[in-house]
Simulated scan of single mutants.
Amino acid sequence: MFSANHQKFIEMDELSQQKVPFFFIVDFLAENIEMYTESQVEKKGLLIDFQNFKNINPTQELHKKTEWKSYPETLESFKKGFDQVQENIRLGNSYLTNYTRKTKIETNLSLEEIFYHSQAKYKVLYKDFFVFFSPETFVKIMGDKIFTYPMKGTIDAALENAAEVLKNDKKEKAEHYTVVDLLRNDLSMVADEVEVEKFQHIDLIKTQQKDLYAMSSEITGTLKPEFRGKIGSIMKKLLPAGSILGAPKPKTLEIILKAEGFDRGFYTGVCGWFDGENTDSCVMIRFIEQENDTLYFKSGGGITHMSRLEDEYQEMKNKIYVPIY
């Protein structure tokens, strides 16, 4: 999967070893890898709003009421791929598969307005192509330490005792354990002394449609000597991100490509900023893409043997939101 882009990962290693700050963006299958130094970011028309790097203008107030309509596929249509995924889980080919869908949306906001007015930990606008507002960190690298924060499990925050219900939900808990285990194993490929520091931490995500609680954990490790200062080599080892793929990775990827029937493209890929010393990166979820004149929102969730069709369909729809409030 990565042979054609082996050179790009080497270039990332070279930049990071020379301590040259750069922004990188890698699609889901690591078939498209783009890298830009700070001056190139501007020319490309990329707008970035990360915690440790921003290249944005002061925000103007939004003087209009947000109009937002989504046209999710029918339950029957969703069920086709869902059944394929469940069949593969029953056969033992996967024990967690992240199944995503593509939903047409209509809004009176431009991609740029969505970028400027949405609230999220990580936001990127790729001019006339896509915008995302992601709550999910992929990896952070600080010195010789690496951190990852898998996010799995969401619930409508308006439900009674929602945070407790989420923490104790059998299916969500099993899914979260699986992803934590998967990412602990992934991190062990590039790091030693890998440990789960925080487990089942609950975050509130505000949106105009509804507030959601999301469950995440923190896993840390110390980079192995051969990976220190080599961002490209680290990314090549860790991608695709386990939280948006499933486990085991190679077989689950085959299942996803068959069941979903659309090209994820940059959705669920990763992007990040290397500042010359440290790296912060995110998973590109909560993602709106422009195809010709139509906007599509890509969303989904993890499927396990305990998943119920109606619940997963509802979760996919719950995630079609814009965090403007």
Score class of each variant (00 low, 15 high):
residue 241 A to I: 01
residue 42 E to T: 00
residue 283 V to M: 01
residue 189 M to T: 10
residue 23 F to M: 00
residue 294 T to L: 13
residue 29 L to G: 08
residue 299 S to P: 15
residue 170 K to F: 09
residue 276 G to E: 02
residue 289 E to I: 15
residue 280 D to I: 10
residue 10 I to W: 06
residue 244 I to P: 06
residue 310 E to D: 14
residue 161 N to M: 10
residue 316 M to T: 04
residue 253 L to H: 08
residue 219 I to H: 03
residue 292 N to S: 15
residue 293 D to L: 14
residue 14 E to Y: 14
residue 268 T to N: 10
residue 22 F to K: 00
residue 39 S to T: 00
residue 57 N to Y: 01
residue 181 D to M: 06
residue 5 N to R: 13
residue 127 K to V: 15
residue 20 V to S: 05
residue 297 F to R: 02
residue 124 V to N: 13
residue 54 K to M: 08
residue 305 H to Q: 13
residue 121 K to D: 11
residue 5 N to S: 15
residue 216 S to P: 08
residue 26 V to F: 07
residue 232 G to R: 02
residue 122 Y to E: 02
residue 259 A to F: 05
residue 66 T to D: 03
residue 66 T to Y: 03
residue 51 Q to V: 09
residue 174 A to Y: 05
residue 51 Q to M: 07
residue 308 R to V: 13
residue 5 N to W: 13
residue 180 V to H: 00
residue 113 E to I: 02
residue 287 F to L: 01
residue 233 S to N: 05
residue 123 K to R: 14
residue 298 K to F: 12
residue 45 G to I: 00
residue 323 P to A: 15
residue 82 F to H: 10
residue 209 Q to N: 15
residue 130 F to S: 06
residue 263 D to W: 04
residue 212 L to C: 08
residue 62 L to N: 08
residue 267 Y to H: 06
residue 244 I to T: 14
residue 194 V to R: 02
residue 107 T to H: 06
residue 88 N to W: 01
residue 260 E to Q: 06
residue 7 Q to M: 12
residue 243 S to M: 05
residue 275 D to W: 04
residue 96 L to F: 08
residue 77 S to N: 11
residue 181 D to L: 07
residue 293 D to H: 15
residue 186 D to V: 12
residue 206 K to A: 11
residue 32 N to E: 12
residue 251 K to G: 02
residue 94 S to M: 08
residue 102 K to D: 14
residue 26 V to N: 04
residue 41 V to D: 00
residue 45 G to K: 01
residue 307 S to N: 11
residue 152 K to S: 02
residue 250 P to Y: 11
residue 301 G to L: 07
residue 168 N to E: 07
residue 313 Y to G: 12
residue 182 L to H: 05
residue 168 N to I: 04
residue 85 V to C: 11
residue 251 K to P: 03
residue 95 Y to W: 03
residue 13 D to E: 11
residue 41 V to P: 00
residue 66 T to K: 02
residue 91 L to M: 13
residue 38 E to T: 03
residue 261 G to Y: 10
residue 19 K to I: 07
residue 82 F to E: 09
residue 193 E to L: 14
residue 265 G to I: 09
residue 111 L to E: 01
residue 6 H to F: 12
residue 115 F to K: 06
residue 61 E to T: 09
residue 219 I to S: 04
residue 272 G to N: 06
residue 253 L to M: 13
residue 144 D to Y: 11
residue 261 G to A: 10
residue 270 V to C: 13
residue 227 F to H: 11
residue 23 F to N: 01
residue 44 K to G: 00
residue 183 L to M: 15
residue 242 G to M: 01
residue 38 E to H: 04
residue 188 S to M: 08
residue 134 S to K: 01
residue 294 T to C: 14
residue 260 E to N: 07
residue 235 M to D: 02
residue 236 K to G: 14
residue 19 K to W: 07
residue 34 E to L: 09
residue 324 I to V: 15
residue 124 V to E: 12
residue 301 G to E: 04
residue 234 I to R: 00
residue 191 A to P: 06
